[in-house]
Write a protein that binds this DNA or RNA. Structure first.
Lengths: 157, 157
DNA sequence: TATTGTTATACTCTATAACTATA
DNA sequence: TATAGTTATAGAGTATAACAATA
């Protein structure tokens, strides 16, 4: 052999040129999400919103009187998983479960005044966190990225 | 009011035009990752590799004799979290923990013959899964997406 | 003192199944 | 029969802290 090779650092066979974890969308999605979500938590602080609380509150503010089943559907999670999220938001006085005349099975979710302002405040923090984290990307790149991610989401069953 | 509004479906105030969960990179990343990873699991089957087993095996094949600490670092997880992943791969006979002369603390991870062929086989299944799932994206779009995701990863602490 | 692999432990997120009260 | 909310439960995945062996 012409050169000594560090077996732990170099590819050793021609077919290994095809071994490329970095070329997979799934792997890169996961790694990028870890970076963004941990920075999200850092930005929102110890007792701030976790990503799922923030998403849920955002949709409750956007669609006041949304019922839990519909919110779960929009978030892409099971109804059962939403219970603790709403419990938390209600416990903080940010959201109210309201009876709906005409169907006593359902609970309409409405933001309280505190909930609306807590949301608007958190939204600004989240925007600042994304702006700082994505400062290496041009605005068009961020738009492109979001468009491509939404294209992938649309392929869902 | 000129038109009746369904409060659960329409924005009701001007400032709410700025409420836009869909405009956040983090939210879209998470949703897209859920789509891709659940399709990954479906494609690889009940007792196939989970994403993290696949990633670990891929790097062990790419870097034979890699030590556990270094593999954890490359994967972006803690050393302690890698133990059960390697236990699983070793239990299936796909990877061996080998002593390293000169430093008796470390374990070098090497794929077995079965491990290498199981990996190459799984890699083909993963590629087919991604090709099918991303068939709405042009090849340049996939490249662009991966490039942008890697840019985000590079901002990590 | 520092590092490697390991164990114990706990926490977050999520899913499934079953229950209740309604429809 | 079917649906909305709920509870109980379990399983990934991951992190932190501590330990033994070794450097």
């Amino acid at each position: 052999m012409a050169r000594a090779a560090d077996a732990s650092q170099l590819r050793t066979r021609p077919e290994d040129a095809e071994i490329d974890l970095e070329g997979l969308v799934g792997y890169n999605l996961k790694r990028a999400y870890v970076v963004v979500s941990s920075d999200f938590r850092r930005a929102l602080g110890e007792d701030g919103f976790a990503p799922r609380q923030f998403s849920a509150l955002s949709l409750i503010v956007q669609f006041p009187e949304i019922i839990q089943s519909e919110l779960a559907r929009k978030l892409g999670i099971e109804r059962s998983g939403l219970v603790s999220i709403v419990d938390d938001l209600e416990g903080r006085g940010l959201v109210s479960r309201m009876p709906v005349p005409g169907d006593r099975r359902v609970q309409a979710l409405t933001p309280t005044k505190d909930g609306r302002s807590a949301y608007l405040n958190a939204r600004d923090v989240v925007r600042a966190h994304e702006a700082a984290l994505l400062s290496d990307l041009a605005p068009e790149e961020v738009e492109t990225l979001i468009g491509l991610l939404q294209k992938i989401r649309k392929t869902e069953a």
